[in-house]
């Protein structure tokens, strides 16, 4: 399972890397920020809750954008710098190291949420008032955790192949669409909805919206239902990621490709 001490150390190290060179957050959050701003322009005639909907969804997209870029690359950079072998011979499980990094990266995605909030408040004059602040904070924490775990799943592939950069680029935009963060899932075609339901961000975004927008419950599961499903899907992805790390670490050691870049 997750070694908390290793996870905490990795989180700390990742935060130090960020403060040493904060410019690298820009490539990760620029896409969701622009996507949300474009959405706000398209929704400007609608006003009211629809704009709030876009702001909240944009925040989730930002967390996702940063998680998938930074978390996938965290192992990629180790591979590039030639430090992947050194990390793998330490007693700490690699999955715990990556989880600590992912947590920091998702947390950093909140910067995008803040940027979206400021644009919404000052450029579009949207009043972002949260109807259930406690519920909102709990949902935000659950969403952050769920995206970190999803980042771990993608990060695992970097252990075994340097071509993983293509995987995360392939998956970034589909999750923007399938999570239904800035539009209701109901407008997606029926065949695509099962994909949406297995993404934790779908339920996290839903819980965030329920806690903010009065009377909102588009999927009919309520706040606790959405929160429960966020936790359930997150747990499932955590198990998948732990299995992947065990399997792919073993394969990388057999292939001897850890220092190949």
């Amino acid at each position: 399972m997750i070694d908390l001490r290793a996870m905490k150390a990795a989180l700390k190290q990742q935060s130090i890397h960020f403060f040493v060179d904060p410019q690298w957050v820009i490539p990760s959050i620029i896409a969701p920020f622009i996507f949300t701003t474009v959405t706000l322009f398209l929704f400007r005639h609608a006003g009211g809750d629809l704009l709030l909907y876009a702001v909240l969804g944009g925040g989730v997209l930002g967390m996702w954008g940063n998680t998938i870029h930074s978390s996938s690359w965290s192992i990629g950079y180790d591979r590039m710098n030639g430090t992947l072998e050194a990390i793998m011979v330490t007693p700490a499980p690699l999955s715990s190291v990556v989880f600590g990094r992912c947590l920091w990266n998702s947390f950093l995605g909140l910067l995008n949420a803040l940027a979206v909030f400021l644009v919404a408040q000052f450029a579009f004059g949207i009043d972002v008032t949260v109807q259930d602040p406690v519920g909102f904070v709990v949902a935000l924490a659950a969403t952050l955790l769920s995206l970190s775990v999803l980042g771990m799943v993608f990060g695992a592939f970097y252990v075994v192949t340097r071509a993983s950069s293509a995987f995360f680029q392939i998956l970034e935009f589909p999750i923007y669409v399938l999570s239904g963060a800035v539009f209701p899932l109901i407008i997606l075609p029926e065949w695509s909805r099962p994909f949406s339901y297995v993404i934790p961000a779908t339920w996290g975004a839903e819980a965030l919206k329920i806690s903010t927008i009065p009377g909102y419950d588009s999927l009919g599961v309520g706040y606790f239902g959405a929160l429960g499903l966020t936790i359930l899907t997150t747990a499932a992805f955590l198990l998948i990621s732990l299995f992947l790390f065990t399997y792919l670490e073993g394969r990388a050691k057999v292939n001897g490709t850890l220092v190949r870049y």
Binding site: T39, F43, A163, S165, Q169, I170, F173, F183, I187, L188
Partner: peptide, 29 residues
């Protein structure tokens, strides 16, 4: 690093999903 097949999927999926995202947003708006 990235083979032709994966590269092609990357190009096509990015183009398609970015377009789909904004089409859905505009449809909803």
């Amino acid at each position: 690093i990235v083979g032709p097949g994966l590269w092609l999927i990357q190009i096509l999926s990015t183009a398609l999903f970015q377009m789909w995202f904004f089409v859905l947003v505009s449809d909803f708006a």
